[in-house]
Structure formats: structure tokens, C-alpha cells
Design a protein around this nucleic acid. Structure first.
Lengths: 133, 133
DNA sequence: TATAAAATTGTAATGATTACAAATTTAGAA
DNA sequence: TTCTAAATTTGTAATCATTACAATTTTATA
């Protein structure tokens, strides 16, 4: 993934902060919170401000290269993988896993009165690691 | 629906506050927030406290007769209908509609490493009313 | 009626997010 | 290069939902 080109082609000027935040988000399997993003990047960008992280994520979302997860109340998480997938959260260890899914198989009854633009599927339960421990 | 019996059989003592909050939630199509619940009930129960609304909803959730929606960041909503269904939020008018759905048709790839306990499906888009206006 | 437990309440604390204005950086014109 | 305006970043203060917690009230029971 050419990050500079990805930002540029989505009308986002690739500043250092934006690049690092997007790279971090894209490479993170953990769907980090704002706080995690800030904490992990502030050593590389000592002047980084948490406000910038908020602003930047909002910019990403407005330009369609990032989406939010609200799988659990009280913690918004972010995701730079825009392909269709579901999210599984293990209620024991708290990890969030991506789950491949074929949304087209979803059978709605009476869905015709809505124009569905986005679909989010959230699963909760226990992951294999926690089940076998 | 016999509300007193519903609470009692779920190990919840049916105090006035609990009854009114559950009735309100069960009859509301709007999946209200804590604030809405409080505002709409405080005239009927003048001594009602917002803390009681929080405590009561937590009790309902712990006892499995209410669930939470987090379809949009920053607003937790509550639902007393525990049957399997998806939620559609119209991004224009903000209304949340229940959508009947057959979750069993969902085809996951590689889901075997998880024990899925709950599934939440959130749809966003535009409702028919907003589309035709 | 007396007492203990349960439920409700109000206030203060917490913590994430936003508003906003100041400071810094960047891009383009002269 | 230098200057200027626009864009970006930053820090502080404000907001708002939620939680902690202790006090009060209500309920159940001896």
C-alpha cells in the first residue's frame, strides 16, 4: 500500500501526522482507540496533540478512508480497512478480530422501504484462545 | 405483555421506577437514550433521578431483558425487544427502525475459532420517507 | 414498631470528545 | 529568496454522558 498516494488520491494532503496516523491504523489489527493511537505515536512525533488525532480521524472518515466501530459502549474504535467484514470482540480478553463475511447472503424481510448505505455486523463472544485456557 | 410478571420472572423486584422504565422502553419504537427516558418519565415520577435510570437499565441488561444499541458513536440507546432483529438508522431524519432479519443465513468464513454469543447488525442509510421528500 | 436490607436519590468525579483561538507550517506569488 | 495567505497543528478550556459514592428513603420482615 502506497500511503502517500492513498491519501492524495482521496484529497488529503499527506502531512507527517496524517501519514503516520493512517499507517498506524492500517497496520494495526487491534482497531485502536484515539488514546492508543496518540500514546503509540507521540514518541515518534513528540509535538503530536490528541486534538490532531481527533481532527485527522474525522478527516479520514469524511473522506471515506476510515470507519468507526462502536462494538462496545463507551469506546469508539477506528478501522482503515474498508472492505466488507464483520468484527468479533472477545468478551474475555477484549481483543477485536476481523471476520470475513458475505453480507450479500443476509436475508432481510421488508427491507425495501430503506436505502441501505452501510452495514455493520458486530459479534460478541469468546475467542478460541480464551476458550481453551 | 404482563410487565410485573416479566420483571418478577427475571428476578427483578417490580418497583414503580423499574416498571415505568421498562414499560416505556418496551413500548417505545425509538430506542431512547437515557436522557430521553428520564425526561419523558420525570413528570410521572417527580422524584426520579437520572442515576436511577442508569442503575435500572444496567439491572435490566444484567438480567437479560434489555440490550444496548451503539449504532452511532456517542449515543447509547436501549432496547427491550430481545428477539433477533437488525437496526436501521436513517442518517437524514435520525430515526431508528427495527428490521426483521434471519441471522442464520449469515455466512461466515472461518468463524469456527470463535464462540459467538451475540450478533448485532446495524444498517445506515435513508428511509423511504426521507427519500421521497 | 423496630431493624436491616434494598432501592432511590443527589452531588461530585471521571473521562472522552469538542470548541476555539493561538502558533506553526506550507504553498504560491512577487 | 522573501512575503503573505491559507492550511495544519497544537493546547487549553468547555461540554456532556457516565460512574462513584454516600446519604436518604422505602420496603420487607421479625
Amino acid at each position: 500500500m502506497d500511503f502517500i498516494n492513498h491519501l492524495t488520491s482521496n484529497n488529503i494532503k499527506p502531512s507527517l501526522q496524517r501519514l503516520r496516523i493512517f499507517e498506524y491504523l492500517y497496520n494495526s489489527a487491534e482497531h485502536p482507540t484515539v488514546d492508543t493511537i496518540y500514546s503509540d505515536l507521540v514518541s515518534a512525533i513528540p509535538t503530536l496533540s490528541k486534538t490532531t488525532v481527533y481532527n485527522t480521524l474525522k478527516l479520514f472518515i469524511d473522506n471515506g478512508i476510515t470507519s468507526t466501530l462502536t462494538i462496545e459502549e463507551n469506546e469508539v474504535r477506528y478501522d482503515a480497512i474498508m472492505e466488507e467484514h464483520a468484527h468479533f470482540k472477545c468478551d474475555t480478553c477484549g481483543h477485536i478480530y476481523d471476520v470475513e463475511i458475505d453480507i450479500s447472503t443476509l436475508k432481510f424481510k421488508k427491507i425495501k422501504s430503506f436505502k441501505v448505505e452501510t452495514t455493520n455486523i458486530y459479534l460478541n463472544g469468546k475467542c478460541n484462545k480464551c476458550l481453551t485456557n
